[in-house]
Structures are given as structure tokens and as C-alpha cells.
């Protein structure tokens, strides 16, 4: 079985273009030569602080940004070729879940409308099939069927994230890039969404690239963990090894900084 995603020497530089007067604009190296692979049915987590380049990797993988150099092979196909075939083809291979669920849903569209788009444009289903699929999707994310007529602002953050996940599922892509999917949620809602993601992974045979800054969350969901620091991947190992015996200084600092409940109880 081939890997879901293979990334080789991925580089992304922002700016650096020519200005009107021939000078060069400020260059920002967001991602500096990163390589990793996501295996089938695996959850690979990328952790790192803000500005470490983890979201940039995610956005490149789903085609929202174009890499400056390097190679991305997604589900056995080269990303360049996928992009050339248009967003509809790309969307069927890999899907993306945003950090802020409310911002990722258009405030002036009903949920019916929002879920309809990927079913129509990516899967090409007729109206009857679409209606049936929408019901299935809402069932899968455990939302009531009257959800369809309502607008995004009528839902809480957790419910909106379920809807956003349903939209990503609608494309029937087997690879999901989850960009801080639970960071904006309350703890009890966060636990529920993590459970849901876990169930969906098994039910639909998915592979997850899970991006987060919360080490405890990452440990609870991932098989392997990669640590990003200033645009570079400093460590990549199985979750168990990485948390038990971190080898890089920065990883050690991250683990030491995470607040714990036990610390108070032990004092």
C-alpha cells in the first residue's frame, strides 16, 4: 500500500518579489525544506508554536498555497498535476478542516446550501442522491436533520465544527488535513469532537494530518508526532517515543511547559 501523503524538501517563501523600483520585498521563509510521509490510516500530528510553519504546510497540502519548491505526492499523484486538473480534482483527494468553524461557514448560506456544494461540484451527484447523502453526513457527525434549514450563526462552536467536518467528509476524500480543529472549542466540546474524529476515521477509513499546538490533545489522537520549530521539522517519531524520550531541546521545552493537573495535586 502506498503512503497517503509523501512530502520531500518542501519549501515555502513569502515575499521576495520585485517592487516597482526594482528592489526586493522582505522575504519570509515559512517552511524550510520539510520531508515526511503520512501512511494510510495513520494520524500524523504536527505540533509547533505560532509561526512555526505548520499551517503553511497544511495549506500547501490542500492546494490553498503553492510551494516555492519541493515535491508533494498526495494519494499517489503529484500535487502539481492535481493542481493543473483544477480544484475539483484536488478536492476529491484531500480535504481540509479549519480552526475556526464559524468563520469557515458562510454566514449568509443555509447548511443545506453549504453541504450541497461539494456534493454537486466534487462528486457530481444528482439532486436526489445529494439529499440522501446530506442526511447520511449529518448522521455521521451526529447532528439532527433539521440542521439543514438553519444558518451558521444559530450553532455553537462545537456544532459548527461538526458541520464543517461533514462538509469535508462530503467530498469523499480519504485524506483529511485538520488544522487546529479543536483549538477554538471548550474542553468538553473538544473531547466530543476528538471522539467524533476518532469514530469517523474508523468508519470511513481515513488518514489524518492533525495540526495542533496542544501536546496533550496530540498525544491522545496521534500515532506519530512531528515537531516544527521555525520552519523546520526538528523531530518526528511515534507518539510514545517522542513524549517519553524527546531528543530535541525544543521538544523537551514544549513538554516541560505544558500545564498539568497532577502538579497541583502533588504539591
Amino acid at each position: 500500500m502506498s503512503d497517503a501523503i509523501v512530502v520531500r524538501d518542501l519549501v515555502k517563501t513569502f515575499g521576495g518579489g520585485r517592487t516597482l523600483f526594482g528592489g526586493r520585498t522582505h522575504e519570509l521563509h515559512a517552511v524550510k525544506g520539510v520531508s515526511f510521509e503520512l501512511k494510510q490510516n495513520e494520524t500524523l500530528a504536527i505540533v509547533g508554536e505560532s509561526g512555526s510553519g505548520k499551517s503553511t504546510i497544511a495549506r500547501m497540502l490542500v492546494g490553498l498555497e503553492t510551494p516555492s519548491s519541493g515535491e508533494m505526492i498526495i494519494d499517489g499523484q503529484d500535487a502539481k498535476e492535481l493542481r493543473a486538473q483544477g480544484s475539483a480534482v484536488f478536492g476529491r483527494v484531500v480535504q481540509y478542516v479549519f480552526q475556526d468553524p464559524v468563520a469557515s461557514l458562510n454566514p449568509r448560506k443555509t447548511i443545506d446550501n453549504i453541504l450541497d456544494v461539494p456534493l454537486r461540484l466534487l462528486c457530481g451527484y444528482d439532486a436526489g442522491k445529494r439529499a440522501a447523502r446530506k442526511k447520511e453526513l449529518l448522521d455521521a457527525v451526529q447532528m439532527p436533520s433539521d440542521t439543514l434549514e438553519r444558518y451558521p450563526h444559530e450553532f455553537s462552536g462545537g456544532q459548527a465544527q461538526r458541520i464543517a467536518i461533514a462538509r469535508a467528509l462530503a467530498a469523499e476524500a480519504r485524506i483529511m488535513v485538520l488544522d487546529e480543529p479543536v483549538s477554538a472549542l471548550d474542553v468538553s466540546v473538544q473531547a466530543q469532537v476528538l471522539l467524533l474524529l476518532d469514530d469517523l476515521k474508523r468508519a470511513f477509513d481515513l488518514s489524518y494530518l492533525f495540526i495542533s499546538h496542544d501536546l496533550a490533545v496530540v498525544e491522545s489522537v496521534s500515532d506519530r508526532v512531528a515537531v516544527m520549530y521555525l520552519g523546520e521539522m526538528v523531530e518526528l517519531d511515534t507518539a510514545q517515543t517522542l513524549f517519553r524520550t524527546p531528543s530535541h531541546d525544543y521538544t523537551r521545552e514544549l513538554i516541560a511547559s505544558a500545564p498539568r493537573l497532577e502538579s497541583a495535586a502533588a504539591e
Binding site: 474542553v187 468538553s188 473531547a191 476518532d198 496533550a216 498525544e219 491522545s220 513524549f243 513538554i255 493537573l261
Partner: peptide, 19 residues
């Protein structure tokens, strides 16, 4: 419930089974 929903470092995948 709130406390149970906070994942802890070192819990690993047991967290999800716990909640």
C-alpha cells in the same frame, strides 16, 4: 465531567477511551 475532558500528557490514547 470538565476535569475528565482535559487530556493529560502521559495519558495517550487512553484519554479517548476514558471520555
Amino acid at each position: 465531567k470538565l476535569k475528565a475532558c482535559v487530556p493529560e500528557l502521559g495519558q495517550g490514547k487512553a484519554f479517548l477511551d476514558g471520555v
